[in-house]
Simulated scan of single mutants.
Amino acid sequence: MTQRTAREIHLRCMVQTEQGLFVAHCIDLNLAAQARSSEEAKAKLDEMIRSHFMAVSEIAREGDMDSAMALLKRRSPLSIRAKWHVAHALGQIRASFRAVGKAWEENRPSPLNAPA
């Protein structure tokens, strides 16, 4: 008998501030949660994702795989997805600079102005 393993689902999420609150978005499931802190917004979103997955699981157990799959493919509006892509790209750029080292500017005397 072969052992089945759970298939992982890659979810893209982000937190941003909107009107003085932190809003956590899961752009792959079109879910969002808001709170007064980033950590609280993330925790609320995590609970929403768990509840969403439980509902999808129940629908699948009832035999309605089309509806279950549709609920796993609910993408956020383009404006939210675009914000995620920008934030992700900026994060990648920041990480690449950390890997290279710090950059700086400084002024030095030109060797052409050195006394002879």
Rank of each mutant, 00 (worst) to 15 (best):
T2W: 05
T2C: 00
T2E: 08
Q3F: 02
Q3K: 01
R4Q: 15
R4V: 13
R4W: 10
R4S: 15
A6W: 08
A6M: 12
A6R: 05
R7Y: 08
I9Y: 07
I9R: 02
L11W: 08
L11F: 11
L11V: 06
L11E: 14
R12C: 12
C13S: 05
Q16M: 15
E18G: 04
Q19T: 12
Q19M: 12
Q19R: 14
G20M: 10
L21I: 12
F22P: 06
F22W: 04
H25K: 06
H25Q: 05
C26F: 06
C26Q: 03
C26G: 05
I27G: 00
I27Y: 04
D28N: 07
D28M: 03
L29R: 00
L29I: 02
L31Q: 00
L31F: 04
A33T: 01
Q34A: 11
Q34L: 10
Q34C: 13
R36P: 09
S38I: 00
S38Q: 04
S38E: 02
E40M: 01
E40I: 01
K42Q: 08
A43C: 07
K44A: 07
L45Y: 01
L45Q: 03
D46S: 05
D46H: 04
E47M: 09
E47G: 11
E47Q: 06
E47C: 10
M48V: 04
I49Y: 05
S51G: 09
H52W: 05
H52T: 02
F53C: 06
F53E: 05
F53K: 02
V56H: 04
S57M: 13
E58K: 02
A60G: 03
R61S: 14
E62T: 04
E62C: 09
E62A: 10
G63L: 01
D64A: 12
M65G: 10
D66G: 04
S67V: 10
S67I: 00
S67G: 13
A68F: 02
A68V: 11
A68M: 09
A70G: 10
L71R: 02
L72G: 11
R74Q: 15
R74D: 10
R75H: 14
S76W: 00
S76G: 07
P77I: 08
S79T: 15
I80M: 00
R81P: 06
A82V: 10
L90S: 14
G91T: 09
G91L: 01
G91M: 06
Q92P: 03
I93Y: 04
R94N: 11
S96N: 10
S96T: 14
F97N: 04
F97M: 12
R98P: 02
R98N: 11
G101Q: 01
K102M: 13
K102W: 08
K102V: 12
A103S: 13
E105N: 05
E105R: 01
E105W: 06
E106C: 12
E106P: 04
E106T: 14
E106I: 05
R108M: 11
S110E: 08
P111S: 09
L112W: 06
A114I: 12
A114M: 14
P115W: 07
A116T: 14
